[in-house]
Amino acid sequence: MWVIENRQYLGEVDSWSRAEQFGDGVFETLLVSDGVARALSLHAKRLEHGLRCLKIPPPVENLQHMLSGYVDNMVESSGLRNGVLKVMVSRAKSARGYAYDAQAEPCIVVFFSSYQAPKNEFYEQGINVQICSTQCSIQQQLAGLKHLNRLENVLAKSELHSDCFEGLMGNYLGFVVEGTMSNVFFEKGDVLYTPELSLSGVAGIMRSLIMAYCRRKGIALHITHIKMDALPQFDSAFVCNSVMGLLPIKKIKDKPMAIGKLTRQLQMAIRSGEIYA
């Protein structure tokens, strides 16, 4: 096939990136702190799970060792000891069409960049969150995966008002799913609630760490379907991901939220590193 890219004629090629053609792959985004990647084993396990679900052969047998090697290489090459590592693994390049060679070796692209954390006041006072009109598709085969098809998140992110740091996305059934770049938890009394992700959404690494912490500490946690119109019943809420950590929510749409005791406890566990134990 013959290719023109950005008005430049490239001539004849045998194949092209399936990540670019179809979003055919998965990715991991790791926080690197003082030269060490946080929650490395969990990222490796999720990467392995995603590749298996998409029937993409793993590029190496030991994915954790692969990720660790990329961290070391990028830290040494860039001179940065703190930043964000993004690793994309996509199905092997192919010509036009959805068919693929199941045995072909996948493609890997790695980015490493500096990271500017959210403002301190967001961690202490909380953030404003709006409800996005863009919905998460329901697709059980892809639910939970951090796959490369992120158009819904891109569109939802573009909706955010200037005074809102994050937006919540639901599905057509009216259930809360996730934030545009985060998972969400709600607090009521001494109980935490987080959306069940069997229909759609990304099963985030920080979400997994918080769930494990709750089990260790005996904190009641309900993983369940939560209706958008039920949000006013909760006392407090927060969003989280593996890069920014945990941000309390001070307002969802027009409803003010308090910052709960469990929210503060989890913040402290993340800051101290206890959450990673």
Results as ranks from 00 to 15, higher is better:
residue 148 L to Q: 15
residue 132 C to Q: 11
residue 165 F to V: 10
residue 124 E to S: 10
residue 167 G to T: 06
residue 166 E to G: 05
residue 134 T to K: 14
residue 166 E to N: 09
residue 149 N to Q: 12
residue 131 I to N: 05
residue 132 C to F: 09
residue 146 K to D: 03
residue 168 L to S: 04
residue 152 E to F: 03
residue 165 F to C: 10
residue 126 G to L: 10
residue 139 Q to T: 03
residue 159 E to G: 05
residue 156 A to W: 04
residue 141 Q to W: 10
residue 136 C to L: 12
residue 128 N to P: 06
residue 132 C to Y: 06
residue 168 L to P: 02
residue 159 E to A: 02
residue 155 L to P: 07
residue 133 S to G: 00
residue 131 I to V: 06
residue 134 T to M: 15
residue 141 Q to Y: 09
residue 149 N to D: 09
residue 157 K to H: 09
residue 152 E to G: 04
residue 137 S to M: 03
residue 131 I to A: 10
residue 159 E to H: 05
residue 158 S to T: 04
residue 137 S to I: 02
residue 164 C to T: 07
residue 154 V to T: 09
residue 165 F to S: 06
residue 133 S to K: 12
residue 150 R to I: 08
residue 148 L to I: 09
residue 145 L to W: 08
residue 144 G to T: 07
residue 145 L to V: 02
residue 166 E to F: 04
residue 161 H to G: 15
residue 161 H to P: 05
residue 125 Q to F: 08
residue 126 G to A: 01
residue 124 E to P: 00
residue 169 M to E: 14
residue 148 L to D: 02
residue 130 Q to I: 10
residue 131 I to K: 10
residue 128 N to R: 13
residue 127 I to D: 04
residue 136 C to D: 13
residue 126 G to P: 07
residue 153 N to F: 08
residue 165 F to E: 14
residue 145 L to P: 00
residue 143 A to D: 01
residue 137 S to F: 03
residue 163 D to Y: 04
residue 132 C to L: 12
residue 160 L to H: 01
residue 139 Q to W: 11
residue 135 Q to R: 12
residue 136 C to H: 08
residue 139 Q to H: 12
residue 162 S to H: 12
residue 143 A to W: 00
residue 146 K to H: 07
residue 153 N to Y: 06
residue 166 E to T: 05
residue 147 H to S: 04
residue 163 D to F: 01
residue 151 L to P: 02
residue 131 I to M: 14
residue 167 G to D: 14
residue 164 C to W: 07
residue 165 F to G: 02
residue 136 C to T: 01
residue 126 G to K: 09
residue 135 Q to S: 12
residue 133 S to P: 00
residue 169 M to S: 04
residue 134 T to W: 13
residue 164 C to A: 12
residue 143 A to F: 01
residue 143 A to N: 02
residue 130 Q to A: 12
residue 126 G to E: 12
residue 148 L to H: 05
residue 146 K to N: 09
residue 144 G to P: 01
residue 167 G to A: 06
residue 154 V to F: 04
residue 154 V to W: 04
residue 141 Q to A: 15
residue 156 A to I: 09
residue 162 S to Y: 06
residue 155 L to A: 11
residue 166 E to I: 03
residue 150 R to Q: 11
residue 126 G to Q: 12
residue 136 C to G: 02
residue 127 I to T: 01
residue 126 G to H: 10
residue 168 L to N: 02
residue 162 S to E: 15
residue 161 H to T: 11
residue 163 D to A: 14
residue 157 K to C: 08
residue 156 A to Q: 13
residue 143 A to C: 05
residue 134 T to A: 13
residue 165 F to N: 10
residue 148 L to M: 13
residue 154 V to Q: 10
residue 163 D to N: 15
residue 166 E to W: 08
residue 160 L to P: 00
residue 167 G to I: 08
residue 158 S to P: 01
residue 129 V to L: 11
residue 151 L to Q: 09
residue 160 L to I: 10
residue 143 A to S: 04
residue 139 Q to N: 15
residue 150 R to P: 04
residue 147 H to F: 07
residue 133 S to T: 10
residue 153 N to I: 00
residue 151 L to E: 07
residue 136 C to Q: 13
residue 162 S to Q: 15
residue 150 R to M: 13
